[in-house]
């Protein structure tokens, strides 16, 4: 029987954790699941709620705790250290797997094995529903074609979200550690290293969304996301440069526009204008195109 460790970081969201745990318990896959939760220094009441949730699970749960809040990358590194099963999946507190997720992803592993592939070199991602607070879910397709480094950086066809993944323990160890200097986008950094180290992302065949991501920009720090984006560009600059100057301008533009979106959603208008101005300077042609697109949509 296959064994799977489900790695769950948690900080101050017992309600979200309860939703996520219920979705793990509801999986149609029949192998042995062990849940590992690392709480990142939540206050006493929240942690007690997490303890109660862990105790109430039918599946085996290992609960660990950072004595102080150390950030998500550190917490994820602790989760990596706790891996004991041959297969690993991730789930952030608050996000939800649909019942067939793990089963479909294991089926994809079987297909790869039958095709003679070394499955340690694959991470199985999946399509997912993107749920903005107060809106209807939107299906997001993961397109795992070629040039995965480029696509991950552009973030349109392929996005770096750990909770979509199933992989072998060996593959996650080979990808190294989470960079503790990246409070945001550490997933992207980790995915890039996996692909550059010889790994490939793939999706189960003929499936629709296999999980649900609750998305909100509220409280997200615009300056922090911009700094993290900059650090990732610096870390992988030699690999990104090969796609040419236009690509580099585009990813700088995207990073500035993302920071502008965060600032806007947080009501920081001056910051938003500054980041938008910076985006226009990065890639004026793209900015004009985007503006024209918005005007046309508004006109309709």
């Amino acid at each position: 029987m296959s064994r799977l460790d489900v790695l769950m970081p948690h900080f101050r969201d017992p309600e979200g954790l309860a939703l996520s745990l219920a979705s793990v318990a509801g999986q149609s896959w029949t192998g042995d699941i062990r849940i590992i939760i690392v709480d990142d220094g939540s206050p006493g009441a929240d942690f007690r709620a997490v303890e109660a949730l862990a105790a109430a699970q039918e599946l085996p749960v290992v609960l660990e705790r950072n004595t102080v809040n150390r950030g998500r990358p550190y917490t994820r590194n602790r989760l990596l250290d706790a891996i004991d099963s041959p297969y690993v999946a991730w789930l952030d507190a608050g996000d939800v797997w649909y019942p067939a997720k793990i089963e479909k992803q294991f089926e994809q592993f079987s297909r790869l094995r039958l095709a003679g592939e070394d499955i340690t070199r694959y991470w199985i991602t999946c399509h997912y529903d993107w749920q903005w607070t107060g809106r209807k879910p939107r299906l997001i397709h993961q397109d795992t074609g070629e040039r995965q480094v480029r696509e991950l950086m552009l973030g349109r066809k392929l996005r770096a979200y750990l909770w979509t993944l199933l992989g072998t323990a060996e593959s996650f160890r080979a990808a190294g550690r989470f960079d503790e200097r990246l409070p945001r986008l550490q997933d992207l950094d980790y995915f890039l290293r996996f692909v550059l180290g010889g790994g490939t992302l793939t999706v189960p065949e003929k499936t629709r969304a296999l999980c649900l991501y609750h998305k909100s920009d509220l409280g997200r720090n615009a300056r922090e996301i911009r700094r993290c984006n900059r650090l990732i560009r610096d870390k992988y600059n030699p690999h990104l440069r090969i796609y040419g100057p236009a690509f580099l301008r585009t990813i700088r533009y995207n990073a500035d526009m993302l920071a502008a979106r965060f600032a806007g959603n947080n009501g920081e208008r001056l910051k938003q204008l500054y980041y938008m101005g910076s985006a226009v300077a990065d890639h004026p042609k793209r900015a004009v195109g985007a503006m024209r697109h918005h005007l046309l949509r508004a006109g309709k």
Binding site: R193, G198, P238, I242, P245
Partner: peptide, 17 residues
């Protein structure tokens, strides 16, 4: 051959770009 996970980075920018 490199072991899976070992990354090779060429620091020199390609001439073509």
């Amino acid at each position: 051959p490199l072991r899976f996970g070992v990354v090779h980075t060429n620091l020199r920018p390609p001439r073509v770009n």
